[in-house]
């Protein structure tokens, strides 16, 4: 097909143009903006070199947000992925009604974070909220906490709300991975006398490697771009205690009109995510090569 080289470009013209305008150029513009003091309103702005970045490193709220993102990341990777895997293993067994169970666990995955946030506000509300009133009803009132207004626990409460959806996502990825584990292999191990744990550790888990890599990457990226739940439930408060980078970037840019400064936060977020994106791309493309 090398004769008419313009043909593929004719097909690509419209999609590439749109992608360039709304995705590719903006990425470069944000880089440039991060070296300016633009306020988002006035037509003029100055190049100020690395000032924004220097400011970031002495900004306590930036550190707080970054720190919270690390909490999100650790909880997503070391909490949600094992839990998702556990639920997937449990529901992957053949039993009557297994599909209904899977469907129900998966349901939060279809919801907007705004709806999830709203639903969880009824759970976390301090006086009448389901969690606290439930604890009080069973005589464990010491566990009833002001979930969204105590700076020490608010981030964990938000992570719990997000995990409701994220665990379901991990479960789906692992369920798909489990489909690719040949039953004969597991049975052969059983015949050879491997117990349940050994079959899982030495046979099933290695076969789940691709699913695990994807699940980790997806969760890392999602934990770094968490925004909606935080914005809807607390706006990052009280006093920035539940702020994350995405949220802080939005507030700096669109509430405080520090667009140059906001851009530099976005760039930091980009740089952190970049490593993980590379891992994902390499995995995806390698899988790609093997199927072509």
């Amino acid at each position: 097909m090398k004769s008419k080289t313009w043909v593929p470009y004719a097909f690509l013209a419209l999609p590439l143009t749109m992608y360039a305008i709304w995705v590719i150029f903006p990425i470069f513009q944000t880089f440039v903006l991060s070296f300016t003091n633009w306020d988002g309103v006035s037509p003029k702005f100055d190049l100020i070199g690395f000032e924004n970045y220097k400011r970031l490193f002495s900004d306590p709220y930036f550190k707080l947000s970054l720190n919270n993102n690390v909490k999100w990341l650790l909880a997503f990777v070391f909490g949600n992925i094992p839990l998702g895997l556990g639920i997937a293993l449990l529901l992957d067994q053949k039993f009557k009604g297994d599909r209904i169970y899977k469907t129900l666990v998966f349901l939060p995955m279809t919801l907007s974070f705004v709806v999830i946030g709203q639903i969880w506000s009824w759970m976390l509300e301090p006086r009448y909220g389901a969690i606290n009133s439930f604890f009080r009803a069973i005589g464990l009132s010491t566990f009833a906490k002001p979930w969204l207004s105590d700076p020490k626990i608010v981030t964990y409460a938000l992570i719990a709300a997000a995990s409701w959806r994220q665990i379901a996502y991990a479960m789906v990825l692992f369920l798909a991975g489990l489909k690719n584990v040949p039953r004969e292999l597991v049975e052969a191990a059983y015949v050879d006398g491997a117990n349940k744990w050994e079959r899982f550790w030495y046979v099933i888990l290695p076969m789940l490697r691709p699913a695990t890599i994807i699940a980790v990457t997806v969760n890392v990226i999602d934990s770094l771009r968490a925004f909606d739940i935080v914005y809807v439930l607390t706006r990052g408060g009280p006093f920035y205690s539940s702020s994350v980078l995405a949220n802080y970037m939005y507030i700096q840019s669109f509430h405080n009109y520090n667009m140059g400064y906001g851009a530099s936060i976005a760039v930091i977020q980009f740089l952190i995510t970049f490593g993980f994106i590379l891992v994902y791309l390499l995995t995806a493309l390698r899988r790609e090569e093997s199927t072509v």
Binding site: L16, P26, I27, T30, G40, L224, A266, V267, Q269, T273
Partner: peptide
């Protein structure tokens, strides 16, 4: 379907762009 020089690069741009944190697009868009 087509083999051309920039094929892999363009694919890479499409895939890379979808993984970018969307905060990178917010202000310019």
């Amino acid at each position: 379907w087509y083999e051309f020089k920039l094929n892999k690069l363009i694919l890479f741009i499409f895939v890379g762009g979808m993984l970018i944190p969307f905060q990178m697009l917010l202000i310019p868009v």
